[in-house]
Design a protein around this nucleic acid. Structure first.
Ligand code: FES
Ligand code: FES
Lengths: 152, 152
DNA sequence: TCAGTATACGACCGATTCTGTCGGCATTTC
DNA sequence: GAAATGCCGACAGAATCGGTCGTATACTGA
């Protein structure tokens, strides 16, 4: 139900962790997994996915591991989710095409597609960098407000 | 993966259908199910859920059925989803409390909560009425643009 | 060259969630 | 009282997700 998978969650955590350790040449999957108590092998597969999709650079061998392929500012949450979980659709008929058996009768597909785009836009506007700036001791005022246009 | 369940989908379709037939006193679950080719019993349960949550009024007996409890303008997509699928959380740790075993280590929960609120806001700003106004023959200009604030 | 560390990738299975069905009961109309 | 309808819980089949394993491959450094 409109929920991130744990894999995507893990992926975001890992990217954030990498973004917070820019000095280190590379961090292994195990390093990150241990830092958060995530199953190491599972995280490894996730990082591999992110590598395949160009979000990370990998390096095998001793002292190998992963590093961000781009600046943390240039990687959006949307890309991460997309790389891990595949195409982003909130409607249950996942394909933009017409694989849904009730495509002819379903009348909410089109309006919901707009909502889909809006949410995707929100996720696209969030970078890994943004995730690292979540500190907010008390009533701080320096927040970044953005406006997202919802077109119906 | 950030996807509506079919139940929520069906629910939205049904509400839209009801909104489009305001003159009829009440439509039975079967009527709506037949109109869209949805399993009738499943839709019945969904409509019961919506009734329980005050979005619909039901009426048993012959010529009974369901009708909107409020104006279509006053029912948001958020309410529908919430009534059918329960609390809305995009993070995999569903509870706002601390039922997630890795709550102490997870560092993205808080920033993602903001994203969650933003998306909820988008859904709250969409009414059933909006779903019925999806016609847009070509390059029409009379669109409703709304601004949603995303606070990070 | 060889051992050790690390990524890459596919197969697989248990757990969870979702979808849909069934059966029985209550309420209203005719 | 019969028919139509809503109400509700239980359940089974299906799909998805989470996590593990085994093995192959690549790189490093001694
Ligand atoms: S659910 Fe598939 S087209 Fe609407
Ligand atoms: S996944 Fe549960 S706290 Fe982040």
């Amino acid at each position: 139900m409109l929920k991130l998978t744990k894999k995507a969650d893990y992926g975001l955590m890992a990217l954030k962790y990498l973004a917070e350790h820019p000095e280190t040449p590379a961090l292994s999957a195990k390093d990150v997994a241990d830092a958060y108590g995530i199953p190491a092998q599972l995280l490894a597969k996730i990082l591999q996915l992110l590598t395949r999709n160009g979000l990370l650079r990998s390096h095998a061998g001793m002292n190998g591991g992963y590093e961000l392929a781009r600046d943390a500012r240039e990687i959006s949450a949307y890309e991460v989710i997309h790389a891990i979980d595949g195409p982003f659709f909130i409607t249950s008929c996942t394909k933009g095409d017409k694989n849904c058996d009730l495509t002819p009768s379903c009348t909410i597909k089109e309006p919901l597609a707009r909502v889909n785009d809006t949410i995707a836009g929100v996720l696209k506007s969030i970078s890994i960098q943004d995730l690292t700036e979540h500190e907010q001791p008390a009533g701080r005022a320096a927040e970044a407000n953005r406006l997202v246009t919802l077109t119906l």
